[in-house]
């Protein structure tokens, strides 16, 4: 498996390599830290503290890292990297990616119903949280989830598969009409995110 570090110091990357050697017997797969970030990368660790954030290609499986992760989001892990968190995210990435996606999950017409949110949100990336938020109020097909979240279909399948494995996802057995998207006259899509950003800033969260 190929792992990359985005905007980390060279010393941090070396520390990660050492950590991987120490964790080798506990990891489900062999991981290699590579320099080049391309479409085939299995996981990218992203340094959110970098003063000049550079964008990453869309669709990559990423884990955010920060010196103060609790001020970022629930899926963010500590930087400098901690062995326990690295172990969790790498083994989690394997279990989510390597597992064959079952037919029910990948069926684009099957409507998925969320039974419950995960008990802990550590390790669930922003993409996954958007999918969970979408499924909180309605059952939805894969296509509807893609449309509502902007997350790539393959990534949606991975998240759905992971939820299903944890017993958190049900396939709606009855024919459920798609919940109509409620449109309010003056509601701008994404405006709640803007409000959350404003409140977060007032409460001391970094932008």
């Amino acid at each position: 498996m190929r792992l990359a570090c985005h905007q980390f110091l060279a010393t941090d990357v070396e520390a990660l390599r050492s950590l991987l050697r120490l964790l080798e017997s506990y990891l489900r797969n062999r991981w290699e830290v590579v320099e080049r970030i391309d479409r085939d990368i299995d996981l990218v660790l992203v340094n959110l503290d970098h003063p000049a954030p550079a964008p990453l290609p869309d669709g990559l499986n990423r884990i955010d890292c920060a010196a103060r992760p609790r001020l970022r989001h629930r899926a963010c892990i500590h930087r400098p990297l901690r062995a326990s968190e690295i172990l969790t995210v790498l083994n989690d990435a394997v279990s989510a990616e390597a597992r064959p996606v079952c037919a029910a999950v990948s069926a684009p017409t099957g409507r998925h119903r969320l039974a419950a949110w995960p008990l802990q949100l550590d390790g669930w990336h922003d993409d996954a949280l958007r999918i969970l938020a979408t499924l909180t109020s309605r059952a939805a097909t894969q296509a509807e989830i893609v449309a509502a979240t902007g997350v790539a279909p393959a990534r949606v399948d991975v998240v759905l598969s992971r939820l299903r494995d944890q017993g958190l996802l049900e396939l709606a057995t009855q024919r459920v009409p798609p919940a109509p998207r409620i449109v309010h006259g003056n509601v701008v899509p994404g405006r709640w995110r803007a409000l959350a950003t404003r409140v977060g800033r007032l409460l001391g969260l970094p932008a």
Partner: peptide, 24 residues
């Protein structure tokens, strides 16, 4: 306050991506 900001952020995520039968 930072914990409460995370709560508010989560609520806004639900609002941005969910459909709720709230009266117009």
């Amino acid at each position: 306050r930072s914990d409460l900001a995370q709560v508010f952020r989560m609520l806004c995520l639900l609002l941005d991506h969910g459909d709720y039968p709230v009266l117009d």
